[in-house]
Structure formats: C-alpha cells, structure tokens
Amino acid sequence: MQALHLLDTPEYLEAIALWHQGQFWEVHEALEPLWRRLSGPERELTHGIILLAAALHKARSSQSGGWRNFHKALGHLKNLPATYQGIRVSALIEETRQALQAGPGKIPPFPLLSTLD
C-alpha cells in the first residue's frame, strides 16, 4: 500500500485554508473524518492538529480551556519529529503557544516546509 501524503488530501487542504482564516472549529470538523481512518503517526499528527485548533477556538471564550486543549495536543505531537509529512510540527506548536499567550484574535501561521527546504 502506498503511503498517504496528508498534505495532498482534500481534508488537509481545506483545514489549512480554514486555519489561515481563523476558523478553528471548522479545522477540527474538516480533519475529524480523516483522523478516524488514520493510524500510527499520521493519526497522532492529525489528532494533535485538531486539538491545537480546538485550543485556539476555546481560548476565545476560556483561556484555561485553550491551554487544556493545547497540553492535550502536546501529548499527541511529542513523539513526532520536528518536521513530519511536510508540516513543521515544532514550529506549529510554538506558533500556537504564542497565539494563546497573545490572547483571542491572533491567528498563528500553519508552518509548512517550503520547496527550498
């Protein structure tokens, strides 16, 4: 079976576009059906991204709820390499951390590998 490239899936393409628009609940909705079908590190990565999006969404109404989801996400992302499946995982974590510290309204970038890397 050929490896699944997450960034080539319609779910990830939609989720990243929604992320850049600050529609974090919708990111969760876009990725959840795919997440349910995945296994291994791809599932962990996707679950972690869903939880980061949930953290940013929840932080709009409850700062503590945002941090709870952020820490749950770390549990799923901690064993992945700094960059995985073309996503700069460690940078995504740090950008989300900074956005949560800045308060509601900050939309962190979704760091991807460039073709120059």
Rank of each mutant, 00 (worst) to 15 (best):
A73R: 10
A55W: 12
G65H: 06
V89F: 10
D8K: 09
F110R: 05
T83E: 09
L113R: 07
Q98W: 07
H47V: 02
M1H: 09
A30F: 00
K106C: 13
L38M: 08
E44L: 10
H47M: 08
L13G: 14
W67N: 09
T9I: 00
E14H: 03
E95N: 13
R97D: 12
A17T: 04
G66N: 10
P81W: 13
A102S: 15
R60M: 15
A99H: 01
E44R: 12
S61Y: 14
F24I: 05
L116N: 10
L100T: 05
E95C: 13
K72A: 09
G65L: 06
E26T: 03
F110W: 02
R97E: 14
R43I: 03
L92K: 01
Q85S: 07
Y84L: 02
P10M: 04
P33T: 04
V89I: 11
H5Y: 06
S61Q: 15
R43V: 00
E32L: 03
E95A: 15
E94V: 04
I16H: 04
G103S: 14
A73C: 12
L31V: 01
H57R: 01
P108G: 13
L100Y: 01
S64Y: 07
P10D: 10
G66L: 11
A59E: 15
W35E: 04
D8P: 05
A53G: 13
L7N: 10
S39M: 04
L77N: 14
F110L: 04
L112T: 06
T83A: 02
F110I: 06
L38H: 07
I87F: 10
L56S: 14
Q63L: 14
M1Q: 07
H28E: 07
L116A: 14
I49D: 00
T83R: 02
I50V: 11
A82W: 05
G66E: 09
R36Q: 08
R36E: 08
H20M: 08
A82M: 05
E26H: 03
L80M: 01
L77V: 13
H57L: 02
L31H: 00
A82V: 07
A102H: 07
I49E: 01
H20A: 12
D117L: 05
L13A: 15
S39Q: 08
G103H: 14
H57Q: 06
K58M: 04
Q2G: 07
L7F: 09
I16L: 03
V89T: 11
H76I: 00
L4N: 01
P111R: 06
R60V: 07
L80K: 00
T9D: 02
A99K: 02
L38Q: 08
M1L: 11
G75F: 00
T83Y: 00
L100A: 03
P41L: 06
L45F: 11
P111Y: 08
S64N: 07
T46Y: 00
A102V: 01
L77H: 14
I16P: 02
L45N: 11
S114I: 00
L77R: 12
K78I: 07
Y12A: 01
G75S: 00
L80V: 02
P108A: 12
H71C: 09
